[in-house]
Simulated scan of single mutants.
Amino acid sequence: MKNPIYCIGLMSGTSLDGLDICYVRFDSDTSFEILQTEGINYSSAMKNQLKEAYQLSAMQLCELDVQFGYYLGEQVKLFVDKFHIEHLDFVASHGQTIFHQPDKKFTLQIGNGAAISSKCQQRVICDFRTQDVILGGQGAPLVPIGDELLFNEYDACLNLGGFSNISMNRNGKRIAFDICPINIILNHYANQLGLDYDKDGQIASTGKINQSLVEELNQLAFYHQSYPKSLGFEWVEKEFLTIVEKYDLCIEDKLFSCVEHMVHQLNNTFKEYDINRVLITGGGVRNQFLINLLKAKSNTELIIPNDNLIDFKEALIFAYLGYRRYLGKVNCLASVTGAIKDHSSGIVYEPIELLRILQ
């Protein structure tokens, strides 16, 4: 490729900790440089709105889709102005997942692409998951194409976000799957104490393990399924939290028991796939209690990179998904999602010249 491509990746995860913005230059399929990043915390009102969105009526959800799109577009515009960005080929947006039920052939990420484009006046690529689900795939995880081409020096790449997911190369093919919930659970119980999250895992560390709870969680059917497989909030609410709430425990004990369960599932995966060296990113890396427990119970070398990659790797790779869609290249791997074929996914919205139209 002769000319570099400049783009912005937007990531809003299931843990609802905020919006990650990553401005990156791609020089080729395997070469990139992160140029600027910014993390934006959601207001309490927006966080609650997104958290409760799955309960809205169809009309209310349509309205939120557009309003959240306008919000994303406005944040892009502010980011571009703040860092005096002159070269920008497109914005790639993950959106906010509200529903994810690939077995029923649907997934929904809100943050309307046309609304984003109209606010920031840039080309926008979004809705990366729907096509894969229609093609029989899980629509997730989508990050492994970036792991394969940008971070292939590791045995595996592990992301600790709302959910943990892992990707690795096996027999010449990339495979990936969700392992277990992480921040979506830890934040849920921290919220009950009036906190956004359990900083460094300090609250969990003061609790006690309830072994019966850990063992019951470990028996959940999802953990015994083979890949491809993925998790959504509906599963957390119906399957996971239902079990935890059966136990009359204080928040500290619930947190410690959940962390113990998470470490067990992560370590099981390392052992099953003979992973010796893993790159770990995502907000869960900041939970020192979780990481220390994982280090103590695992023989796998845990590689924790610089802050930009810890916090913005997913935003970077959604920019990469947009980059490959922009060039008409495959960005969804059938070996990962279970779709009937590899494909290039994402809907492209060209900027609308609003002023000219209105005149």
Rank of each mutant, 00 (worst) to 15 (best):
residue 235 W to T: 13
residue 272 E to C: 03
residue 251 I to C: 09
residue 73 G to N: 05
residue 112 N to K: 05
residue 146 G to L: 00
residue 200 D to F: 15
residue 246 K to A: 12
residue 57 S to H: 03
residue 347 I to F: 00
residue 66 V to F: 14
residue 3 N to F: 13
residue 262 M to V: 14
residue 299 N to T: 13
residue 94 H to V: 01
residue 213 L to W: 04
residue 129 R to T: 05
residue 82 K to S: 07
residue 320 Y to R: 01
residue 165 N to S: 08
residue 179 I to C: 02
residue 260 E to M: 00
residue 194 G to Y: 12
residue 148 E to R: 09
residue 181 P to I: 02
residue 345 S to R: 02
residue 275 I to G: 04
residue 288 Q to D: 15
residue 291 I to P: 02
residue 117 S to C: 07
residue 339 A to I: 05
residue 122 Q to R: 10
residue 198 D to C: 02
residue 351 P to N: 13
residue 349 Y to S: 04
residue 87 H to M: 13
residue 292 N to P: 14
residue 314 E to Q: 12
residue 154 Y to G: 00
residue 53 A to T: 08
residue 140 A to E: 03
residue 245 E to H: 15
residue 157 C to I: 01
residue 280 I to S: 06
residue 157 C to G: 10
residue 144 P to F: 11
residue 280 I to D: 04
residue 66 V to A: 07
residue 53 A to W: 02
residue 198 D to A: 05
residue 278 V to W: 00
residue 61 L to I: 07
residue 28 S to N: 11
residue 333 L to D: 01
residue 294 L to F: 01
residue 97 T to I: 06
residue 166 I to C: 07
residue 271 K to W: 03
residue 250 C to F: 11
residue 282 G to T: 02
residue 228 P to H: 13
residue 148 E to D: 08
residue 319 A to F: 10
residue 277 R to G: 09
residue 173 K to T: 11
residue 183 N to A: 09
residue 316 L to F: 12
residue 75 Q to T: 12
residue 35 L to K: 12
residue 96 Q to R: 14
residue 133 V to R: 06
residue 275 I to T: 04
residue 234 E to H: 14
residue 45 A to C: 14
residue 117 S to V: 08
residue 173 K to R: 14
residue 53 A to P: 09
residue 50 L to Y: 09
residue 320 Y to T: 00
residue 318 F to A: 10
residue 334 A to Y: 03
residue 288 Q to C: 14
residue 151 F to S: 00
residue 261 H to D: 11
residue 194 G to K: 09
residue 22 C to W: 09
residue 18 G to Q: 01
residue 159 N to A: 03
residue 357 I to R: 12
residue 225 Q to Y: 05
residue 4 P to E: 11
residue 87 H to S: 13
residue 174 R to Y: 07
residue 318 F to Y: 05
residue 246 K to R: 14
residue 325 R to L: 04
residue 204 A to H: 09
residue 117 S to F: 06
residue 261 H to C: 03
residue 277 R to S: 12
residue 256 F to E: 08
residue 10 L to R: 09
residue 194 G to E: 13
residue 262 M to W: 04
residue 291 I to V: 13
residue 250 C to R: 15
residue 161 G to F: 02
residue 93 S to W: 12
residue 6 Y to M: 09
residue 143 V to R: 00
residue 347 I to L: 13
residue 48 N to F: 13
residue 113 G to Y: 08
residue 49 Q to I: 12
residue 52 E to H: 13
residue 323 Y to C: 11
residue 30 T to M: 05
residue 263 V to K: 08
residue 289 F to S: 05
residue 157 C to H: 03
residue 250 C to A: 15
residue 299 N to Q: 12
residue 240 F to A: 06
residue 89 D to C: 10
residue 162 G to T: 03
residue 207 G to N: 12
residue 318 F to T: 01
residue 32 F to G: 00
residue 287 N to G: 12
residue 38 E to P: 11
residue 281 T to Y: 06
residue 163 F to S: 02
residue 270 F to E: 02
residue 244 V to T: 14
residue 85 I to H: 09
residue 56 L to D: 06
residue 357 I to F: 06
residue 200 D to C: 14
residue 290 L to M: 08
residue 123 R to N: 10
residue 353 E to N: 15
residue 266 L to A: 07
residue 232 G to A: 11
residue 12 S to D: 03
residue 305 P to Q: 10
residue 229 K to R: 08
residue 2 K to G: 15
residue 314 E to D: 08
residue 137 G to I: 02
residue 268 N to E: 05
residue 323 Y to K: 01
residue 163 F to V: 11
residue 230 S to D: 01
residue 327 L to N: 07
residue 345 S to I: 02
residue 348 V to D: 02
residue 224 H to F: 13
residue 328 G to K: 00
